[in-house]
Amino acid sequence: MSLATLLLLADGRLPSGGHAHSGGLEPQISAGRVRDVTGLEGFLHGKLATSGLVAAAFAAATCADVRRCGELDAGMDARTPSPALRKASRAQGRALLRAGRAMWPVSPHTGREPHQPVALGALAAAAGLQPLEAAVAAAHGVTTGTASAGVRLLGLDPYAVHALLARLAPVCDRIAAQAADRCGDAVDDLPAAGAPLLDIGAEHHATWEVRLFAS
């Protein structure tokens, strides 16, 4: 494994369009549920335990065996009831693959527009990384992308937000370890933790005419 390669895959500057998404934060700010760093912390703990765990598990499972891309992609569909979130996940998957194909030889099993965690797992495999590393990159991406959206949407103190991210780092490690432990499970047995307000918020967000983030 190459630590530098993992850092590259998890880097927010990877040109994969991730900065265009708030991870579901924008609608919750609009609904008045997140107003400050404390609200962001509660949001991120819940997001990590739900969609973060699912993303980490599916990235790890794809990385462990890229021939499973098709069934894992269908498994993400079944865990993503919001059509707005399915669309956002596939858009991010496609953008990530585009960047990744320029970097590493990505498996042809991946398809054109997979869910983002499947794309991430396929890239991790192509880069020679292990399932646990794919899971860490997924969990890390869930927190950092959302946190930077919080800085932009609420004008939060970036130092306070990074202090929050430092507190969440061990949580990301724990979630990733849980996810990687289960990476060989049958698709129905993989984590499926849902977050009702993320789903409902995404559907509200999709109806807005003006928004800062795509999702």
Binding site: G39, G42, L44, G46, K47, A78, P81
Partner: peptide
């Protein structure tokens, strides 16, 4: 449809704005 929901004192972030 494949869904799990965990709530209560042992569930991290369940009363946060995502869940």
């Amino acid at each position: 449809y494949r869904h799990e929901l965990t709530a209560g004192p042992r569930a991290p972030g369940w009363s946060g704005a995502a869940v």
